[in-house]
Deep mutational scan, measured.
Amino acid sequence: NSLAEAKVLANRELDKYGVSDYYKNLINNAKTVEGVKALIDEILA
């Protein structure tokens, strides 16, 4: 998966839960796919 794909999928996942734009910005600023995954795990914990 590319970083861009990971960000799109992460933001879709956040949308399902009604997560605020603050967290979407964190996702969009992530530098690695692993970073995106770690943020998602933390946000949805």
Rank of each mutant, 00 (worst) to 15 (best):
L26F: 05
A45S: 12
L26A: 07
K24V: 06
D21G: 07
N29E: 14
E5P: 02
Y23N: 03
D21R: 04
A10V: 03
K24R: 13
S20G: 13
V33A: 04
N1W: 09
K16H: 07
L39Q: 02
S20C: 12
D21K: 06
S2H: 10
E5V: 12
A38D: 08
N11Q: 15
N25T: 13
L26M: 10
I43P: 00
N11S: 11
N29K: 10
A38P: 00
L3M: 02
N1R: 14
Y17E: 03
S2G: 12
L3N: 01
E34T: 06
D41E: 13
N1P: 13
V8I: 15
Y22G: 05
N28C: 06
E13R: 04
V36Y: 01
V8W: 09
K37H: 12
E13V: 14
D15S: 09
D15K: 06
A38H: 08
S2A: 14
K7A: 01
N1V: 12
V8D: 15
A45R: 15
V33H: 05
S20T: 10
K31P: 07
G18E: 08
D41H: 08
Y17M: 14
D41R: 13
K24C: 03
L44E: 03
E34Y: 04
N29Q: 13
E42Y: 13
E5M: 12
K16D: 05
D21I: 04
V36C: 02
E5F: 06
V19D: 04
D15F: 04
I43C: 04
L26K: 07
Y22P: 03
A6L: 14
K37M: 13
A4Y: 10
V8R: 14
E34M: 07
E13C: 15
L14D: 00
A30K: 03
L39S: 01
K31I: 11
Y23K: 02
N25W: 08
S2T: 12
I43V: 08
K31E: 14
N28H: 08
G35T: 14
S20E: 09
K31Y: 05
G18T: 06
V8G: 11
Y23I: 04
R12D: 12
L26V: 04
L26T: 03
V33C: 03
N28G: 04
E34S: 09
I27T: 01
L14R: 01
E5K: 10
Y22D: 07
I40F: 14
